[in-house]
Amino acid sequence: MRTCLSEVAKRRLAVVAGAIWLTVCTCGVAALVRYSRLTGDTGAALCEFPTDLQVQNSDKRFSLLMFVHPHCPCSHASLEELMRIHARAQQDLAIEIVFYHPANKSSAWAMTSLWRTAQAIPDVRISFDSDGRTAGRFGAKTSGHVVLYNSDGRLIFNGGITPSRGHEGGNRGTTSVLEHIRSRDKTREICPVFGCPLQAQAVPTDASICGAVR
């Protein structure tokens, strides 16, 4: 009788343990997914491309700037998406990748795998943004933030080009950028940015609220 009870207890214990395991695993994965869905601060981008800035290959009809934290692991996905965009629209697109660089750090601090990946993309200008001033000027606060300006210097896309944090793949941001370039749609698109914050404290910005306008 004791043995039977013990067996029953063991079975119940196994069921409880299995249920706990299922719960823990499911909740853990859900939490991880939820973390990946945590968006960064999209911020308010400049509605007009500043005239004092010169983007490489400015003869192209569109100018795209991506602000990247050189150590942000999530931005690999952003660069991957950027390479897809570049592959499809490089004849119309002038791309500059702006790497955040604290002033108190050497340039080697910024020469990470992200920087080397960016270097491998042809016809892309790479620059270092000391203390994130340029990013702050454009209102970019999260690594992977992309702003797209048309030939008129008007902002037509503001946001991220990844589906979630550190995840590449089809997403509304990439699709939107490519559609704007292909259709020359002048409507402004804002997408969430997934990545590490560029700075702990927000820098003074010239950006005005430039929301989605259709």
Binding site: G28, L32, P73, G166, C196, P197, Q199, A200
Partner: peptide, 27 residues
């Protein structure tokens, strides 16, 4: 791939590490 998460020039252990260790262990 994601050892640390960064905010500016400061970093902390990435949640993927904790997830890989604990959640992966649990799985």
């Amino acid at each position: 791939l994601s050892p640390r998460t960064w905010i500016g020039d400061t970093s902390s252990l990435h949640i993927h590490i904790w997830a890989a260790v604990f959640l992966g262990g649990a799985v």
